[in-house]
């Protein structure tokens, strides 16, 4: 399971890096740029929990020169007008490494464009919300607690599960 930094930040905001560790179940890996972004994000107020990510995902994978070239191509595909040159590098590096090394894994990202590009490159993608659904399915968290997380993340401008605007919609979404 490879995360991007948006997913790591979500788990840090709800202060449940322990839950992410349980879900990764020893299958966590990350690329060097995501690890670097995560370390920088941990400096921001309220995100110190990100310090636990190193334990979960271990030694980061660094791109080879050929993968660096792939990263440039992929980053170009992800970019939008106005983006600074360093934006999307974490997602591009992740996709480049998974693709070139033919790793059998999931890419966890809440970035729609990164998910689209990963899918186009044959990588299975999932999201923060799907991981939280999985945690509920495995009875690691109950529905009320998860609803609390949804509200916390929404309050931090991190979005909501698809179509979830209230508790009724949440209860409908949960078993899907």
């Amino acid at each position: 399971m490879f995360p991007d930094n948006t997913v790591l930040i979500n788990f840090a905001i709800i202060n449940r890096m322990d839950l992410l560790e349980k879900l990764a179940n020893g299958n966590g890996q990350w690329c060097a740029t995501v690890a670097g972004e995560c370390a920088e994000s941990a400096e921001y107020p309220g995100l110190a929990a990100l310090g636990a990510a190193e334990e979960i995902f271990g030694e980061p994978l660094y791109p080879s020169p050929a993968e660096h070239q792939d990263v440039q191509v992929l980053r170009n595909q992800l970019a939008s007008p106005g983006d600074p040159p360093t934006k999307h590098l974490g997602e591009a590096e992740t996709v480049a490494i998974i693709t070139r090394r033919r790793l059998s894994c999931f890419f966890v990202t809440d970035d729609r464009d990164a998910a689209r590009l990963a899918t186009q490159n044959g990588i299975t993608v999932t999201t923060t919300w799907r991981l939280l659904q999985l945690a509920h399915r495995k009875k690691t968290i109950d529905a009320d607690t998860l609803w609390g997380y949804v509200q916390t993340l929404r309050g931090n401008d991190r979005g909501t599960p698809p179509g979830v605007r209230d508790r009724a919609a949440f209860d409908k979404w949960l078993p899907t």
Binding site: A32, H68, V71, T86
Partner: peptide, 8 residues
């Protein structure tokens, strides 16, 4: 190795 963000 360099990471992509370090290299950029």
């Amino acid at each position: 190795q360099f990471s992509s963000i370090e290299l950029a």
